[in-house]
Write a protein that binds this DNA or RNA. Structure first.
Length: 352
DNA sequence: AATCCGGGGGA
DNA sequence: TCCCCAGGATT
């Protein structure tokens, strides 16, 4: 058996029962593919089920507001995916008459759809012969062929994409693509792959040369930025002051609290005497409580957040247009990053 | 080409 | 801790 036959044979016997494999509807496949980007199947599946149930057609998805999409996306991360989906759904309604594209060349033009996702949707929905190259495929091919070209360079991406397209069984592109990813995910795992049970072990170059743990090669240049977030809890008449975040930073268009970011850790008592703080809340502010510092890790940032509950503040000076008061019911409808909704879970428990 | 964009889980 | 996950957009 050749490579394609081996992995397809393996796939038939070992595939998982995933909900989005039961359809050829390009809209539903799109939903699943975007949700699964950089996301484990176990983490993304509940989100897929909720989205597919609430928005069974692209028309219903397009009729939702961005706020609604982000709220349903809450907790999954990489929120630009949700914002891009919202744009794409509306464009599909307007320029594709509500028919979600099935061919690669149309798909690749859509916001949030790159080479991987266009290949996945086109092959799964219409069997177009485009090989998918995701993290699983990079790993499997680099090991099987013993290729140490870094996978996160232009050269590496082209090399592995060309290779995958040569291996592709064009008569059943969709099944081949499912198979190669599933194989990489379950059999050729990143750590401690079970080579003894692997049907490709005899021909695997990494196994022959004992380089399983060194492949694939990836250039790492991750510099983490440390940031200090001082969040203000300001309540009035049972409502709480909320901030809608803007563009150009993390969590775009999502909701958090009035934020005073400092370059270094700062004490609440110093913060409330700062010029900027006073210009917002006045000079007579008292501190009711200060939370223990909370660490929150993002892919490129390490946030140190503290939550400062204030009283006796004046909001005559509230110059920030993005701040507004909401009650409990409204708050629960707002899309919040995990750091924030996790804080509120504890905060409400304390206040009830 | 390099950097940014979340959050979770395994070792 | 470090690495990786059904990646893509921006600079």
């Amino acid at each position: 058996m050749n490579f394609a036959e081996e992995i397809i044979e393996w796939y038939q016997r070992n595939k998982r029962d995933l909900p989005w494999r039961k359809t050829e509807d390009p809209y539903i496949i799109w939903l699943s593919e975007i949700i699964m980007q950089q996301t484990r199947v176990e983490q993304g599946t509940p989100y897929f089920n909720r989205f597919a149930e609430k928005y069974p057609t692209v028309e219903l998805f397009a009729s939702a507001s961005e706020d609604e999409i982000l709220k349903l996306w809450q907790g999954l991360g990489y929120y630009s995916r949700g914002r891009n989906m919202h744009q794409t759904a509306q464009l599909v309604m307007e320029e594709h008459a509500g028919y979600f594209p099935k061919n690669y060349d149309s798909l690749i033009k859509l916001k949030g759809i790159g080479e991987y996702t266009a290949a996945a949707i086109s092959s799964f929905s219409s069997n177009e012969a485009r090989a998918v190259v995701d993290g699983n495929v990079f790993r499997l091919l680099s090991r099987y062929f013993g290729i140490d070209t870094p996978i996160n360079t232009g050269k590496g991406k082209k090399l592995f994409t060309d290779l995958a397209n040569e291996l592709l069984d064009k008569s059943q592109a969709g099944k081949f693509n499912q198979a190669i990813m599933e194989f990489g995910s379950l059999q050729c795992k990143p750590k401690n792959p079970d080579c003894l049970s692997c049907p490709l072990q005899a021909a695997c170059e990494a196994r022959k040369t004992n380089r399983i743990n060194e492949l694939p090669v990836k250039i790492k240049s991750l510099k983490i930025r440390e940031r200090y977030f001082n969040y203000i809890i300001a309540q009035k008449d049972g409502q709480i002051l909320i901030n809608k975040r803007g563009a150009g930073d993390i969590w775009e268009n999502m909701f958090d609290l009035p934020l005073f970011e400092t370059e270094f850790p700062s004490h609440a008592h110093d913060l409330i005497r700062s010029e900027k703080f006073i210009s917002c809340f006045g000079e007579k502010v008292k501190i009711r409580s200060v939370s223990a510092p909370v660490k929150h890790i993002l892919s490129h940032q390490k946030l140190h957040a503290s939550f400062i509950e204030i009283e006796s503040f004046s909001d005559r000076f509230l110059s920030e247009r993005s701040w507004f008061y909401v009650g409990q019911d409204e708050l629960e409808k707002l899309a919040q990053p995990k750091l924030i909704f996790h804080f509120f879970e504890n905060f409400h428990k304390l206040n009830t």
